[in-house]
Computed example of a mutant assay.
Amino acid sequence: MSTERPDPFVVAGERETLRSLLDFHRATLAMKCEGLGDEDLRKQAVPPSTLSLLGLVRHMAEVERAWFRRVISAEDVPLVWSEEGDRQAAYDASAATRSEAFDAWRAEVEHARRVERQAGSLDVTGVWARTGQDVSLRVVMLHMIHEYARHNGHADLLREAIDGSTGV
């Protein structure tokens, strides 16, 4: 399946700009994984790091869930891969499959999009449990763009190490 990556808007309102940049980065992560089987997607970066493309997809499913469901929607749901709240558990993709990871990630992305669309304003807030601070949907969307951009840089290096592919 080929991922279609939307170009981010360069002239738009704040919400449309944030939405388009976030979707651009979501699609970039998916594109970095295209054409690879489970074994390649589980290949780890460099010892002692356990970082892999599949681990990044799993991690981003957790991040989507944590910020949109748990913070903005105040849903009392566990993390996807750790009921104990271990945020690092998602990175362990040693037994993971593409379908398991991507199904969870896509489900969380779709849920996040619904949360964002249903929010009346970017000023809607939720409570960040780790600090007890209120955080706005605006800040969550900016954080998500930052999180994807940072991890897409990791994905660039991981993909190049697997098969020499660069760019995208």
Rank of each mutant, 00 (worst) to 15 (best):
T50D: 12
V71D: 04
K32G: 03
D40C: 00
R98C: 07
A104I: 06
A107H: 07
S73N: 12
A95M: 15
A93K: 06
E64G: 09
A30G: 07
A89M: 00
D76S: 05
A107Q: 13
S52L: 10
E16W: 04
A104W: 01
H25A: 08
R58H: 07
T97W: 08
S94K: 10
R65Y: 05
R98P: 04
A104K: 07
E75Y: 05
D86K: 02
G55C: 09
A96G: 15
E16F: 02
C33R: 06
H25P: 07
D103F: 02
W67H: 07
R58K: 14
T50G: 15
L79Q: 08
A89R: 02
D92C: 04
A27G: 15
L51S: 14
E34P: 06
E75G: 04
R42G: 08
I72E: 04
M31H: 08
A74S: 14
A101Q: 02
S52P: 09
E39G: 10
A27T: 11
L54Q: 08
R26S: 05
D38S: 12
F24E: 01
V71I: 15
A95F: 12
T28S: 14
D92L: 02
C33E: 04
P78K: 01
Q88E: 15
S82L: 00
D76Y: 00
A74W: 07
L18W: 06
R65P: 06
F24I: 01
L54M: 15
R42A: 09
R19I: 08
A61L: 10
I72C: 03
L22H: 00
E75R: 12
H59A: 04
L51M: 15
V63R: 04
L54E: 08
L54C: 10
R26Q: 13
E39Y: 08
L53S: 05
T50S: 14
